[in-house]
Design a protein around this nucleic acid. Structure first.
Lengths: 222, 222
DNA sequence: TTGTTTCTTAAAATTTGCTTAAAATATTTT
DNA sequence: AAAATATTTTAAGCAAATTTTAAGAAACAA
């Protein structure tokens, strides 16, 4: 993931760069608006962190001009203190989020993750014991042999494996796999978990789907 | 952590409530602006989720009136679709953040965490002697090994550890963990404390749950 | 001691999940 | 278009785990 920081104060810029690199993002810095806009328009970045007050063109100008060309790269504004008004102009200019200085680094990280989340589908293969789920070919293999899963079964398994080792709450599952964002009272999840467990033959595979009562499920390797 | 959801659509409200409770927040719902404002002004909440369109007083009015009295409780607006303008009014009225409907539950969670973090160091891991409680994976570990706790056991331990070193009164416990806000005469707490002490094997762990007669319990490290 | 509070245990009540089968939808084939 | 097939969802009975109640034993304070 490539991040461009457009920020004139070297102290802040380097602080951000260093921190993000520790999180294994790849970070470039531009120290003024003009250079920043140029680099941003190269289109090689996944997200922009944009200071409000900049020499050259102001942050908001950069934002506006950038948005004319590139619509989908998220922009997060780094606004000074209390200027709600700035924030507002920023949002109107096409920013996706804003964060007030001084901010905690964790906060910045979470903002970035929120913006990056929908896009980041890095993996195209997941392993689970002796089972392999391949997103490209949309296949599930167990020791060379293919296990045929239906759409929903596949989607559910994919979700569980994206979160391997972490608890998948029922609400998360119903959101991600079934795309139901409000009320639900259904036992579908149970039925599909059951189907998965049967089809995958998990007994001897070094993996299992554990149920956590009252919460959800977790895909675990032994 | 107590959260008040002010939202007139029961479907959405309950969905949020359920999801947040799975994350072990304590959630109340108000179905219109007037009631919502009343409850919010009681000052017992750590964060407000506020719908824009409400019967009674509008969300923005609630926000404005609330901010006159209480400055520091974060407010997150749940705004409909694309109305940037609404967002902007919301921020001017004193909201801290906004999230567009329909939103993914994960995004809401991160927004909430971001708001809560600076205030009281919202952790996702707690330690207690040689025991680690992990909120993300919903696991309790003791020297690499997992200790399986039920929902209530987990919630109780979490509450004790959030208040590590501080006395937890029985009323507080029954309110936060069992969500009982009135009279109670039950021995559940005792039963669960007992279960915790047994399951956690606290003898040699450098930690213990001390009972304070007539008052409650306290989780202490030696 | 005496009365109160907490501990411990076991059983009752309740909730939650599993498993099936059948109903409702979608998709493919004829 | 109809029939056949496959997928997805609902529903219901059963099983199992969790939660709560209750009651006697133990610990504590006065």
């Amino acid at each position: 993931m490539r991040i461009l920081v457009i920020e004139d104060e070297p102290g802040i810029a380097n602080f951000i760069k260093q921190g993000l690199e520790e999180e294994s993002y790849s970070v470039d810095i531009a120290y003024d608006g003009t250079k920043g806009l140029d680099r941003a328009l190269s289109g090689e970045y996944d997200i922009l962190l944009l200071d409000w007050m900049l020499p050259g063109i102001s942050g908001i100008e950069v934002c506006r001009k950038f948005r004319k060309d590139i619509k989908d790269t998220p922009i997060i504004f780094l606004t000074a203190k209390d200027t709600v008004q700035d924030t507002i102009f920023g949002l109107q200019a096409g920013a996706n989020d804003y964060i007030k200085k001084p901010f905690s680094f964790d906060e910045l990280l979470e903002r970035i993750r929120v913006q990056l989340r929908p896009k980041s589908g890095e993996h195209d293969k997941f392993t689970f014991g002796d089972i392999i789920l391949d997103l490209k070919t949309h296949q599930v293999l167990k020791k060379e042999e293919e296990i045929f899963l239906t759409q929903k079964e596949f989607a559910l398994l994919e979700f569980l494996l994206r979160n391997k080792g972490k608890v998948c709450r029922r609400t998360q599952i119903i959101e991600s796999v079934w795309d139901i964002h409000f009320e639900y009272n259904t036992g579908v999840i149970d039925v599909y978990i059951n189907a998965l467990r049967n089809k995958l033959g998990l007994q001897d595979s070094g993996a299992h789907i554990k149920t956590i009562r009252g919460v959800g499920y977790i895909a675990k390797e032994n």
